[in-house]
Design a protein around this nucleic acid. Structure first.
Lengths: 98, 98
DNA sequence: CTATTATTTAGATAATTGCCTAAATATTGA
DNA sequence: TCAATATTTAGGCAATTATCTAAATAATAG
């Protein structure tokens, strides 16, 4: 997990909106673009940033590229928050709270 | 809560370090500065960004200014993550369009 | 009041970011 | 192969950000 990439990806409102859009289900780049008042190249840039943070996956389907959210990173994000605010937590899986 | 300010504040590694430092307890600007290879004005700037996001509070104590972390925002942050990744938890704002 | 210490504010600058247009790449179908 | 469609890559520009030095503000001690 790339901590800095994750935080950075989430720092932009357009990117957060893309994530929310994809919560409703996968979508092609073009379908996503319909919901945004922004050029496709600009959105493509945001897709890249989100992919860098492993928040998205993509898959080519014919002429289209289908994007979907990667919710497993959610756990990483929650862990990072705990790391910033919570009581010291151990690295052991299911580590007991102190 | 200012969502954008919160995400933005967390996006910088120095600021996350400051938060971690303050998890160990409150500290004056000068005490914090001892732990960082950066000028005090630069750190002061980061304090401002964190304060803007309500992640810090400060209080003058004589010549010193004591900073402490505001953990109540932790709940906000967790909520925002859920909002991005989790099942719908929005309050009746479901089909709202921009 | 003056000096000292702690911290912030102001101003400058280099790096990064977000957006655009234009061009390039990839796939499909005639 | 050529044209159409979908998407990305390249290049440029303006706005924002992180950092620095120098100056300003605030509190306290003498």
């Amino acid at each position: 997990m790339k901590q800095q990439a994750l935080f950075k990806a989430l720092a932009d409102p357009t990117r957060r909106q893309i994530l929310k859009r994809l919560r409703r289900g996968s979508a092609t780049a073009g379908e996503i673009a319909e919901d945004f008042a922004m050029t496709r190249p600009s959105l493509s840039h945001h897709f890249n940033v989100l992919k860098e943070a492993e928040l998205l996956r993509n898959e080519r389907r014919g002429q289209h590229i289908v994007y979907s959210i990667n919710t497993t990173v959610f756990e990483d994000a929650a862990g990072l928050l705990l790391d910033l605010f919570g009581q010291s937590r151990t690295k052991t899986k299911r580590g007991r709270k102190k």
